[in-house]
Design a protein around this nucleic acid. Structure first.
Lengths: 156, 156
DNA sequence: GAAATTGGTTTCAAAATGAAACCACCCAGG
DNA sequence: CCTGGGTGGTTTCATTTTGAAACCAATTTC
């Protein structure tokens, strides 16, 4: 009776995404993956989570094509977990989480890690949402149009 | 012994953010809040989650200053939950989740809701990460600089 | 060839979740 | 003013998930 809710068939893309990566450990695993971590032991050590939990999360991310479980690049017989293209496309999400945290989760002057442009070492710009015509949008300028409200497509 | 992990003192802003909003229901509540939902019953009906869970999540979001529990705007004696400025700053995160889902969680031709510019009705542009100097960056162009690697600040 | 490291799985207790029952307050109608 | 229904929860209890630790097989190192 207490089955865990699933949103994998929702019409809302946010719900489907959240259904896949919307938990604490998955997001932190992805953060570490973007940071270059690859090996089971690296994730486990860096995150400090139980190995069974890590194993299930990695399996899940691999099953959804976000990570790939490939032979280790160091020539050993072990394997490693690397971001796929699909996984790399989560970059914006992680940047968004990071920038919000930088802005709202630290005291003034409290040090935190920073995301910088690898070439110049300068911090990246805050994310912005832009309209199709280039105007900058904030939350009140954008609305969700449900499927039922969308214009029926031209034929074909 | 099975205490839930906490990252509220991490030096990584992603970890702190995820610690606060990194769960399925909180993210979906926020999605609905951006969509204009305000009342307890609206959230409960739209999300279909148990009332006790909703109550704890809302309390948590209010405690962290993301939602505000204010008297209802319709003049009744009830209250409603509205995004604070801090909460509205999560817009980019939700947009990121949405765009990834649009791109990766639907079959070609499968309908989904769309985030559009309220003025013109056009879909919003995909998010982009830009360097300080305006160059567009992808995941491989950006690196996290840990606190320990940062230049000690000039005096003062 | 032995010992340590890696990458897990298994086991079990503790914590979180979910469904349903319950309850207090507000509000509308008569 | 009384009553019935809607709103916004809290409580209770069963089920599920998590987390810690023990265990284990394969690999690598010594």
């Amino acid at each position: 009776m207490a089955k865990r809710a699933s949103h994998d068939k929702a019409e809302c893309p946010v719900a489907r995404t959240v259904d896949i990566i919307g938990d604490e450990w998955s997001l932190l695993i992805l953060r570490d993956a973007f940071d270059g971590l690859r090996r089971f032991g690296e994730f486990q050590k860096n995150l400090g989570l139980a190995k069974n939990i890590l194993a299930t999360r990695l399996r899940h991310l691999v099953a959804h094509g976000i990570l790939e479980h490939a032979p280790a690049s160091d020539g050993s017989a072990f394997h490693e977990y690397v971001l796929t293209d699909k996984g790399r496309d989560l970059f914006h999400v992680l940047v968004g989480l990071r920038q919000w945290g930088e802005h709202h989760c630290f005291q003034p002057g409290e040090p935190h890690s920073v995301l910088v442009d690898a070439q110049k070492g300068q911090p990246v710009r805050p994310l912005e949402v832009h309209a199709h015509d280039g105007r900058r949008l904030d939350a009140t300028d954008a609305v969700v149009k449900k499927v039922s409200e969308q214009k029926p497509r031209a034929k074909r």
